[in-house]
Design a protein around this nucleic acid. Structure first.
Lengths: 353, 353
DNA sequence: TACCAATTTGCAGACGATCCCGATAAGGGG
DNA sequence: CCCCTTATCGGGATCGTCTGCAAATTGGTA
């Protein structure tokens, strides 16, 4: 096959407009110090010839790659794909990220990286060298991996850490997990529940901790006990089931459970069914994530919506602006929302407050 | 910020190994005519320095971009994202595409393109010029857009058309829609159903037609009528509901319905509920797609699984091999599978066959 | 031993855009 | 009207890799 060359280059445009390459370049990059008349003339040539700059060449000559890289956990993502349990993170990342990138003439690429592997550093390092992105978005649990953050910081590549409050380099964006958990808890308290169980996520996600903190704070504020009411899972169905069983087998069984992911909440529904507990009459349930499945369960789940798309969108904007405006040092909180559906109701035996 | 340069270039490797740039290049690209000893020496330097070639520079010098572009319909994809109805196409494309790309050292990028727009051609053309991908994957309905296929053919960019049997340039890969529809129909016939309705997809997807053909053929083979039993939707919920209503309001109501998408099948469930028809006792239902939601409906849906991931994976492999081996002219069929769940049962009033 | 062909290696140029810096043109105060 | 500052524009080098061709090496044969 014949070697493929660029159809229209900056040179053609320059000739057509009768100006230098430099001037065309300035117009493309919207640089100042170009007279309006000149700018118009060049733009006309660009439009007429249908010229589009080659990103490869732009990157080569030391400028931007117009590429934002989004890093996801390989193992987790593939498991979700294979199991067809829905990959809401990827979906919502793409929604928020791609659309925002589009607006600014950038592209987003998703890259899967192994979390639990010795060569995370090499793997990512190679990707960076090959692609040379202008910015990187780290999703949990990568956002808390010091090897990764260290590597990016060393290379001076702007990056965003989603869902992490740990101090360190990079922009931090969270979905205010503490507040969200408190909000869910308060809702249940207001419905008269006094024993509210919580199923936390794994420890290597710091947001797991923040959610527990929010729940505990709201419980204590309401003067309610928390001892023995917090179990732990890994966001997946199986561990969620174990945790749910433990909570529902307690002598003084909770009348409501909040679980840190939709999959774990599905497990709670299953555990309740096994015990002939009706949701929401005997047990109220609130979930985290609000992925598509929660609308189709029986009953549909009340859930804390994680505004992933919006968060990623904010991250993209900040990264794109990075060369010009300094990155915010303080974490940015994007507020979650409690989407009410049929899985919660008044506490059994509680009169109207 | 300081201009970012490549950390380790081919030049460093060449110096380190004491050879010319050329030789290093040959080793990287696995070209013949390099003595084993030399190859080993260069490879050692590459490993030691952690060298990774810059894709931008590779593309610049006229070789590959190691990039496969997957084109999806913007409007449809965004609507699915926003509505959180599940975007199985994007998900499964990424699953099949990214993993296969990874294996070959390629990357996949998803690009959203407006289907119903005058400037499809310009939009795509600009993307091609900017990214210069080594291959393009077109999903329906883009796979049948002559403007797009013509453009790619003219630029000599290898491309794959998913879900289209139309003659023309490019590799064609289908999920054997005709056979799948026939398979679903036969299943219902074997359960004793005699009036089997079909809800087709929109006309601008040629696969819609093939599915109808498969259904009609299976019906006629069984000596069953088809008149008035085929309605049409646009794959979405609302039009699916209209179609379902029409079928269920027929004087001689069908006892089974096959719908061409999961969303339309959800609408069938809704329409059945409105009329107090029990699924599967009064009405059997089979869906197309098998997206994650179908496991959570009541009852879970029997569905024709669309092997999107596998199909895209095949497409990627063929595109990557394109420069060396010629592209197959005949369409490639990837067989779908009928996943049986609770939404089908024997026809009401039919004794065991 | 000498010679020719095939294999292996190196040199210079190209790819398309940007960056640095110098040259020219425009504008403003004395 | 002149000079100096600032806004505009252009020339040449550069980025990292590959392609085309020439040079050097190897190996086998007459």
């Amino acid at each position: 096959m014949a070697r493929r060359r660029q159809a229209v280059t900056i040179r053609h445009v320059a000739e057509d407009a009768g100006v230098s390459l430099q001037t065309v370049s300035r117009v493309i990059n919207k640089e100042p110090n170009v007279r309006p008349a000149m700018k118009e003339r060049v733009q006309a040539s660009i439009d007429r010839l249908g010229y589009v700059p080659s990103i490869a060449a732009q990157r080569m000559s030391g400028s931007r790659s117009y590429l934002i890289l989004a890093i996801n956990d390989r193992e987790k993502t593939i498991a979700e794909w294979r199991g067809r349990s829905g990959t809401d993170w990827v979906d919502q990342m793409l929604l928020g990220g791609m659309l925002t990138c589009d607006e600014h003439g950038y592209r987003m690429m998703v890259e899967l990286v192994d979390t639990h592997s010795d060569h995370v550093e090499r793997e990512l390092s190679a990707t960076i060298a090959a692609l040379q992105p202008d910015g990187v978005i780290l999703t949990p649990p990568h956002s808390e991996n010091p090897l990764i953050t260290g590597l990016l910081a060393k290379r001076h590549i702007p990056f965003a850490r989603i869902g992490s409050l740990d101090p360190g380099p990079g922009i931090r964006l969270t979905m205010d997990d503490e507040h969200s958990a408190a909000m869910a808890t308060e809702k249940l308290v207001s419905l008269g529940h006094r024993r509210i169980g919580f199923i936390a996520g794994p420890d290597d996600y710091s947001l797991s901790g923040w959610r527990v903190t929010g729940w505990r704070a709201a419980m204590e504020f309401a003067g309610l006990p928390t001892d023995g009411l917090c179990e732990k899972g890994d966001f997946g169905f199986e561990t969620g089931l174990e945790a749910a069983n433990k909570l529902l087998d307690l002598e003084d069984r909770p009348t409501a459970i909040i679980a840190s992911s939709d999959q774990m909440t599905l497990a709670v529904l299953e555990a309740a069914r096994d015990r002939n507990l009706k949701v929401p009459q005997d047990l109220s349930v609130i979930s985290f994530d609000n992925t598509p499945v929660v609308r189709f369960t029986d009953p549909p789940l009340t859930a804390v919506d994680q505004p992933i798309a919006e968060t990623i969108s904010r991250a993209v904007e900040l990264l794109i602006m990075a060369p010009k405006s300094p990155l915010p040092l303080e974490p940015i909180n994007v507020q979650g929302q409690l989407i009410e559906r049929g899985s919660i109701g008044p506490a059994p035996g509680a009169n109207d407050a």
